[in-house]
Amino acid sequence: MLGILVLGALGAGAWWFFLRPGAPIAIGQEEHPVADFSFDLSKVNGTAPGGAVSGDGVDDAAEDIRETLDALYVAGYIDPSKWEGGTFPEVLEQFDEAAAERASAGLDQFTLGDQAEQVAFVEPVVGVLKIRVLFDAETDPVGAVATTRFVADGQLDRGGPMHVIHRGTYYLSPQGGSWRIGGYDVAGAVASGPRLTGPGAAQPEPGPSS
């Protein structure tokens, strides 16, 4: 009789610590792979004094800008190894000094925020990017405006779905070999529960057309 009780108690303890949803030491739950993510470049334009420009210079600048914005969203939403206890250092690295100061005061505007530790994984569903690059008379890129539309679904540690809907307009400048965000306008939501789909569902508005 006592043996049964002991085994029962051991089983209950083991379940509590290792197997229940949200257990501190999860055993038997597979680590969810981090999704690969890169924005789809839906539109790229170049502008210079005198009119539109195109070619490798525009494409190269757009690629570099995409790299910056990919890094922002991967570190903010997709890759748990970059959340670092809700401090998201790689997110702030994508901003210039003045914008980083402001962004750090509202980090949840670009990330899962201080509830990131409750999230098991996030998988991107939509990532669309439009870019317009400004060139000077010597055809060096000097600035850019980029709009993003990002939608992702995820799962909470305790079980149950969550989702991210994010729309952004970013003003970027080339600094030290990469592009940094100097200004932004973002809207959307991070929420638990399933993302509504179909007519009437809350979706980020498409970015402005150029």
Binding site: G106, M162, G182, G183, Y184, V190, S192
Partner: peptide
């Protein structure tokens, strides 16, 4: 691991989430 809450009833965890609505220009 999980201290009991007032009322000793199992309550659902607080919903996760926050709105995003912010802008900054230098």
């Amino acid at each position: 691991a999980d201290p009991p809450r007032a009322g000793a009833q199992a309550t659902p965890p607080a919903p996760l989430g926050h709105p995003v609505d912010s802008s900054f220009l230098p």
